[in-house]
Design a binder for these strands. Sequence first.
DNA 1: CGGTATTTTGAACTATCTCAACTGGGGTGG
DNA 2: CCACCCCAGTTGAGATAGTTCAAAATACCG
Lengths: 276, 276
Amino acid sequence: MCPSQPVDTNGNNACHDCPVAQSGPCQWLDSSLRDRLVAASVQKSFRQGETILPSGQPPAWVGIVLSGLVKISTIDEQGNEHVLQLLHPGEMVGDLFGSPALFSFDAATDTRLCLTQRSSIKEAFDRNPEAYAAHLRIAMRQLLEQHFAQLAMRGRNSLQRVAYWISTQTPDTGTDRLLSVRILLSRRDLASLLKMSVETVSRNLHQLEDRGIIRVITPERLEIVDAVRLRLIARDQDSRLKENLLRQGWEWGARSVNLPRYTPKAGQRPALAVRP
Amino acid sequence: MCPSQPVDTNGNNACHDCPVAQSGPCQWLDSSLRDRLVAASVQKSFRQGETILPSGQPPAWVGIVLSGLVKISTIDEQGNEHVLQLLHPGEMVGDLFGSPALFSFDAATDTRLCLTQRSSIKEAFDRNPEAYAAHLRIAMRQLLEQHFAQLAMRGRNSLQRVAYWISTQTPDTGTDRLLSVRILLSRRDLASLLKMSVETVSRNLHQLEDRGIIRVITPERLEIVDAVRLRLIARDQDSRLKENLLRQGWEWGARSVNLPRYTPKAGQRPALAVRP
DNA sequence: CGGTATTTTGAACTATCTCAACTGGGGTGG
DNA sequence: CCACCCCAGTTGAGATAGTTCAAAATACCG
């Protein structure tokens, strides 16, 4: 599948500069297998919003995200779209075994994929079944990412989720200088992914701006002014507490003082809670 | 891994009545491979609440759930446990490649697992790498289930989620007769899984009882009185509308009348929304 | 049976959603 | 080139589902 060297639209051998050569499934394939897959692969670009693999379709190919973001989403009975997961470069689109997709895969941003014929994959994998291991690793990564994403939604209020999202979009370096970030997703997709309404996203963004943590240059471009405080907010709820301690006299912390809420006694299981 | 015939604690060959012989990964393994794995496998039981694989541990074995439910969970900085996913019989516990678990795997109910030495698996799979395909299928199933579970949380209010959960616990037969259901999970786990507080779970359960849809016998045992209406509520929000139409004069439907909220115009993308 | 843990009930509070109106940029066609 | 339209984003105000805290009731267990 993610052939290391698929032929691009010009017929050139594009694998030597494949952006996911080190992160995609190909990293675990030996060169002979890769060569076999190259022949059956093409790269293809999708515009933001384009559907890559519609729900219900048994995929004729399997794709690896090369660049951009792919959203797994579905539209419910009321016509509301729900973004379930974002796929990053190196991850898979489409079932290797040909099961029809149960959700829709769309380009969340402009996207480039490496598409490989399923029929060719099957043939190649029958000969080199260890290649399945590579895809298993990717599948498990996607599962793990999904769990993390879910966890990030739990126990965080909307402001924290927005802050968290922004901080995931930046290199993890502790830069204290101005950092420009491009929000690739539309407000709608972002809101759905963060499980809140568009309005709330907007309000939170501007609340962060009012607090001098970010600057909203254009709707899709923003600057991180105070990366430290951003992460502090994103981190967890008791960042509120910390932040209040730092700049006391703010009027929305009253409840924070009630922490800690968790005082385990011997043998008592910790309380489960969705909201901290 | 899920050897079809692991030796149980009595040294007997237990595979011929393996409960997941048809649904677990073994279904795709040929008998020679299964035989090889049998030798390295044992069945083991865990009590509700016991930790099967602690977070941070590189697993020495890989397990297949035979019966019961395993929860993937984590405890956040405030000591709140978050249940991220439930694993059902036939699904996998522990990374095949030996990566340390990033979340904790615990028995959500009394549970029985089939554990296979990772070292033996590796050896066996190196010879029969197609076995990875079987595990890839399972991994993709878990991912899919996770997406469905997430979707079930979206666009449903707490009452609907509870109703949905109950209805998933019953055989899908359209029984109109009294059906007894055992809630295997503790209220805490259930609440966390359904992303609500314990109190709300309780209130919803009793609201369903007041409406004559279920009967709460004991906290962990309940009867479904009206499976049809239960599913109607679980289904989606406009079940409210339907239910109001059927038995009009109920006082909590006012807003439902505002439906439909989605009136797409040509070329307009559907509105994204988290809550219907 | 007494003590403890869980579940239930009640009441107040608040984060977030919904609805609705406003803003501004980009493209289109006159 | 300008006026207009259209749509994404923003802002405001009100409504509400669900949380939190606290206390009562019930189930569980030795």
